[in-house]
Design a protein around this nucleic acid. Sequence first.
DNA 1: AGAATTTAATTGACTTGGAAAATAAATTCA
DNA 2: TGAATTTATTTTCCAAGTCAATTAAATTCT
Lengths: 140, 140
Amino acid sequence: MDQPDRPMTNQLSYALAAAHRRINASLNARLRGHGIQIEAWRLLEALESGQRFTMGELAEIVLMNPPALTKLVDRMVSDGLVHRQVAQSDHRKINVLTTALGRKRMMQIRREIEDQDASIQRQLGESDSQKLISLLQGIT
Amino acid sequence: MDQPDRPMTNQLSYALAAAHRRINASLNARLRGHGIQIEAWRLLEALESGQRFTMGELAEIVLMNPPALTKLVDRMVSDGLVHRQVAQSDHRKINVLTTALGRKRMMQIRREIEDQDASIQRQLGESDSQKLISLLQGIT
DNA sequence: AGAATTTAATTGACTTGGAAAATAAATTCA
DNA sequence: TGAATTTATTTTCCAAGTCAATTAAATTCT
C-alpha cells in the first residue's frame, strides 16, 4: 500500500519513530501467539542471567516508568512468571526474580522467536548495524 | 546516574527504542508548555499543506492506529483545532481539516519550537544524520 | 539518640494507546 | 439485483504513561 504524501519536516525524528514502530509491530506479532507482551519479554530476558535487579534498575532496563513497571510486575506475578523479594541489604529495595515457570516460558519463546537484531542485521548488514547503534547512542 | 548492567541481546532494537524515548521526551517537554502533544503537533503539521487526508491516511502519517487517531481527532475537534468532513466521493471516508484556530496555533508553536532535527544534527553532524535516516528507512 | 531529609517503591486519578469486535458504506459477483 | 465480501471508521475494553501523593526504610545532622 502506498504511503500518502507527507510533510518532510523533522525527517529524522520521524524516521526514528517510524522504524521503532515497525520493529515493535513485528516483535509484537511474533510474541502475541505466546500471550506475552514486549515489556514482559524484555523483563524476562533481563532476568535471565540470574543477576538480581531492583525495581528501579529494571525500570531503566525495560524503559518503563516505575509505576508502569509496578503494574507489569503485578501482572507477571499473578501469571506466575516472577516473584518479588525484599532486598536483605536495604529493605526499601525489591528484587524481582524469575520463577521456574518464568524461565521455562522464556526458553520456549526464545526458541521460537527469532532474534530481533538478527533480522535487522540481515537487512542492513553487519557494519551498517554497528554504525546504526553508535549513531543512535549519540543522540541525547 | 549509572545504568545497571544489562543483557546485551537485541542491542540494536534496544538502542532504537531508547533513542526514540529520549527524543520524544525532549520534544514533549518543549510542547508541554503549549498544551499540545506530539501526535497532535504532527497532525497539524501534516494538514498544513491544505491537502485533504482521510483518517486512515492520517493514521499512517502520525504513526498511530486508527482507533487512537479517532480519539486524538475527537479531542482536537473539541479543542477547535480541526473538524471532520465526510468525503463526497466515498461516504465511509472522513477528511480531517484544520480550522482557522488550528492553523493559528500551529504557526505560533512552530515559531517557538525549535526543529527537532536541528538539535539532532547539531549532535551528529549533517552527514551522519543523513546516514542515520537512510539506515532507519532500511529497516522493515 | 532523635528529628529532618532522602530514597525506593507503590497507589490513585486521569489521560492516552493498542487489539479485537462492531458498524456502516462501497464493491464484487453470482 | 441482491447476497457476500471488502474497506473505513468507530466502539469497547484493557494496558501503559504521567504526575502527585503516600508509605516505609535508610541516611544525615546536630
